[in-house]
Write a protein that binds this DNA or RNA. Sequence first.
DNA 1: ATAGCTTTGTGTCAAATTTACACTATCCAA
DNA 2: TTGGATAGTGTAAATTTGACACAAAGCTAT
Lengths: 251, 251
Amino acid sequence: MQHNPKKINSELNPNVSVDCVIFGFDLEQLTVLLIDRGEISSAFGPRLALPGNLIYDNENLDMAADRVLDELTGLKNIYLEQVGAFGDPDRIHKESDREWLKSIRAEPEARVITVAYYTLVTMSQYKPQASSFAKNADWVPVNEIKELAFDHFEILQAAKEKLKQKIKIQPIGFNLLPEKFTLSQLHRLYESILEKPLDKRNFRRKIQKLDILTSLREKQRGVPHKPSLLYEFNEEKYQELTQTGFDNFGF
Amino acid sequence: MQHNPKKINSELNPNVSVDCVIFGFDLEQLTVLLIDRGEISSAFGPRLALPGNLIYDNENLDMAADRVLDELTGLKNIYLEQVGAFGDPDRIHKESDREWLKSIRAEPEARVITVAYYTLVTMSQYKPQASSFAKNADWVPVNEIKELAFDHFEILQAAKEKLKQKIKIQPIGFNLLPEKFTLSQLHRLYESILEKPLDKRNFRRKIQKLDILTSLREKQRGVPHKPSLLYEFNEEKYQELTQTGFDNFGF
DNA sequence: ATAGCTTTGTGTCAAATTTACACTATCCAA
DNA sequence: TTGGATAGTGTAAATTTGACACAAAGCTAT
């Protein structure tokens, strides 16, 4: 007798969800794309939450995160990194949380374990999608976020920490910037991720030594001060580097 | 109508398991505690697997990992770090895998997502427990492991990598050593975790500068060569350090 | 008791990296 | 033309890294 794995697998898994910390950079500070759950929940707890959804039984975890991201932003092939699994049995305790879960088709009685991801997107490429919950999404500067629904604030902290560690080891920050950017923007980006000031000259020296920037012959326009040279990220050089193995990017 | 969360929660969650990479150090090399799944599975695939089990609906993930660890080793309060969630829908594909899952009460048709942990234990404190599956557990040097059941080899690689990164940032290695140890043993430990040779004098200089070692007035006994001084890990100093924040331990 | 084996324990110097720090150049706007 | 704002640049001192060799201590076998 032949059994049909499709049938089994194409169902929603009621026990496992993914949540995404979608980082952006508005050229001033690090921001996160959050969902406003609306009035219903506001009387009970924080309105804002990380975007997320239950996984399907036939997709792997990364795919589920990609899907959530795509539904919300329309973006594909985005830098994605797993933060970890979060699963306190009492992580969903408020009535408003149960209501919310019903609205995304989850069984509110069941315990849900969530696998958290963080992603890095270029904010200027983001266009809100038509999907129901995407309408209420908005960017919020990370250091203005004081609380989130469920255990999402905890997840956010963990994601920030992971990002901090990662950027000391690999130049992933470019995923947050437009194609052309200035050294000052890159500088501010590093400062806002690491949450500490970095000496301008030392930063520039260090980043230049990596030899993954291509200086364009183009300047900033329309700024009320000396215009900056624009740079491009040089993917080839970066590939070379990762081959030969590099580690130290410590700020 | 009152519902009883206990009833719901005390059941096994058929969809989520934890697997533990239990690291030990035999004073020569890094080892991992593996389960031998026995003859039944040997015809189909690797006999060796990471210890793991389904989680209960009323325990959080860390607790589940602690439980697995306790059942297997009798050890409590062990250094525990999450590696991440692994959940390819096809991670269980062999008939032998299904048999094995049945034996630990899992539903073999269901997709299982596993949350992987690594733990650091002092090998000399380990005494095999009476539990059924613990009888077939044994230490295997990490660099002799070429394959494991399910996706456990992949998990092992990820755990090794995490450990490598972590030990560059925090002196967690002491969890793998007995209370009293020599600098040479610590040295070999770092080499086997980082999988590269470290200059003896430079290593000693660096580790001493951290100021978290207490030199005992005691020497090694019964070794056929110049006996080494014994050292102790100084937890107080370490706490001080972590407060003031320290990062750089890079080798 | 001695010779030989094995591992411990130690210092220095050159090179590279890190840190701290201030002024001129360029563009826009008034 | 002046004032405001940010871009862009160099150096010197301190610290850290990396490379490298030999005497001391205990055990074993003769």
